[in-house]
C-alpha cells in the first residue's frame, strides 16, 4: 500500500472531550506530538488529563522525531469495514518511540513490507489530509532501509 492509498475507517479526529485534540491539530500542521508531564518530564500515552507518575495537571505536548521500532504488528485479511476492502491484506503496527520514552503508538504500515518483524526500525511520514483520510492528516510508518535517502 502506498502512502496516498492508506485509508481510515469512519470519521477520525479529536475525542469529543478534547484530551487528544493537540495530537490531531499538530499532525495537520505537519508535526508529530506526544504528551509529556511538564513537572516530572515523564512521557505519557494514551493521552491523559493528569500525570500518572507525579499527579501533575500540567501536561505538555512535545514534538517527537518520528522514528520507532516495531513493538508488535498484525496483518488484516478480513474486510472489517468497507473502507479497507481495496487494500487487503494490510499491516497495522504498534510502534515504540525511542525519542518519547519508548511509548507505543498505533499506526499503519505503508510501502514495502519486506523485513517486517518485531524490532524492525520504522520511520514516520505524515499522510496529508484528503478525502481518503476524512480531512485529517494521519501519521503512517515505513520500514527503514539502510542507505535509503530522504
Amino acid at each position: 500500500m502506498e502512502l496516498h492509498e492508506a485509508p481510515v475507517i469512519g470519521p477520525i479526529g479529536p475525542y469529543f472531550d478534547g484530551v487528544d485534540a493537540e495530537y490531531w491539530r499538530a499532525l495537520n500542521q505537519g508535526e508529530f506530538k506526544i504528551q509529556r508531564c511538564a513537572k516530572c518530564r515523564i512521557w505519557l500515552w494514551g493521552a491523559t488529563w493528569r500525570c500518572s507518575a507525579c499527579g501533575a495537571w500540567d501536561i505538555a505536548w512535545e514534538a517527537v522525531k518520528p522514528e520507532g521500532v516495531v513493538y508488535s504488528w498484525i496483518r488484516t485479511h478480513q474486510a472489517f469495514a468497507p473502507e479497507v476492502k481495496d487494500v487487503l491484506p494490510y499491516v497495522s503496527l504498534l510502534v515504540a518511540l525511542p525519542h518519547a520514552g519508548d511509548k507505543k503508538v498505533m499506526g499503519m504500515l505503508v510501502g514495502d513490507e519486506t523485513g517486517l518483524r518485531i524490532g524492525a526500525r520504522v520511520e514516520g511520514v505524515i499522510q496529508p489530509a484528503s478525502a481518503k483520510t476524512g480531512g485529517q492528516a494521519v501519521m503512517r510508518w515505513r520500514l527503514q532501509r539502510s542507505g535509503r535517502s530522504g
Binding site: 485509508p7 477520525i12 475525542y15 508488535s72 497495522s92 499503519m108 485529517q136
Partner: peptide, 28 residues
C-alpha cells in the same frame, strides 16, 4: 474511548485485531 480514532485511522476496529497484537508478541 479517546483512543478510538488512533485505532480506526490505523485500520483497527475489532477485538480480534487488538488481541492479535498481543498474541503476535507472545509468539515472536
Amino acid at each position: 474511548d479517546h483512543r478510538n480514532s488512533h485505532f480506526t485511522s490505523s485500520g483497527v476496529m475489532v477485538a480480534a485485531q487488538i488481541v492479535a497484537f498481543r498474541t503476535q508478541r507472545m509468539i515472536e
